[in-house]
């Protein structure tokens, strides 16, 4: 699903965000991406979502070589990726329902389908009763779950999460992680960037560790 081959990212300032990163994630796999802030976690996610392009090396996502995805095709490419942000990136002038429906409206689903899928996604994250609320009236954990519902509502084969539990207490964080596990169980590839070592050490998943832009460890879970 995701394959990095000696991928590097150097910003125009000369800063090397990623250097010779190579790894492969199979479809349906779930993994954590960890490292100090500034180690290159966000840069790596940005390369996958085509928010940035690699300076050298190859990034292949969903059998597509990203270097060959033209600017015009980027929106269509991104529809296959559910992205979850630390700051949710919700639209505060729209209801929860409208926020979650946005990817479906963009993709051109019918009105009836949108209703069904939005409710299914909200049900999945446990917010079914709050469709008509505005995000500002929700707690941080609930807002994050709205973000997750929006990311999964069009059933993308790949989910990227950038510090999804950054602002949440351990209990809520565990709930969010459970959600990701559920998605992974139904065949969705999930890559979660986090520096919450305590949280991921409890979970039996592969962990990629970045340091100064280099992939230093790629540890498979110890079988438990």
């Amino acid at each position: 699903m995701i394959r990095f081959v000696n991928a590097s990212k150097r910003y125009s300032s000369g800063f090397d965000a990623l250097q010779n990163v190579s790894f492969h994630m199979a479809p349906g796999e779930m993994a954590f991406l960890t490292g100090h802030s500034g180690a290159g976690k966000s840069s790596l996610l940005k390369l996958i979502a085509l928010l940035e392009r690699s300076s050298r090396g190859q990034v292949i996502v969903n059998n597509q070589n990203l270097a060959k995805v033209s600017r015009r095709r980027i929106p269509y490419f991104r529809r296959n990726i559910g992205i979850i942000f630390q700051d949710h990136q919700l639209l505060f002038d729209r209801t929860v329902y409208d926020n979650v429906a946005l990817p479906l409206i963009i993709a051109g689903f019918s009105h009836k389908d949108i209703g069904k899928r939005v409710r299914a996604a909200l049900d999945k994250v446990g917010l079914l009763g709050k469709e008509k609320k505005y995000p500002i009236t929700l707690s941080g954990g609930e807002q994050q779950r709205v973000g997750i519902a929006r990311a999964v509502v069009n059933k993308p084969p790949l989910i990227l999460a950038d510090e999804p539990t950054g602002n949440l207490d351990p209990e809520l964080s565990a709930e969010i992680m459970n959600l990701f596990q559920d998605f992974s169980d139904v065949g969705v590839t999930v890559l979660v960037a986090t520096h919450d070592i305590a949280l991921i050490s409890q979970l039996p998943y592969r962990t990629l560790t970045l340091k100064d832009g280099k992939l230093i460890t790629d540890s498979q879970p110890t079988s438990s």
């Binding site: 929106p75 490419f77 946005l102 963009i106």
Partner: peptide, 11 residues
């Protein structure tokens, strides 16, 4: 946000 979730320029 629109661009992040795959909104085309036309949209």
């Amino acid at each position: 946000v629109m661009k992040l979730i795959g909104g085309t320029d036309a949209f």
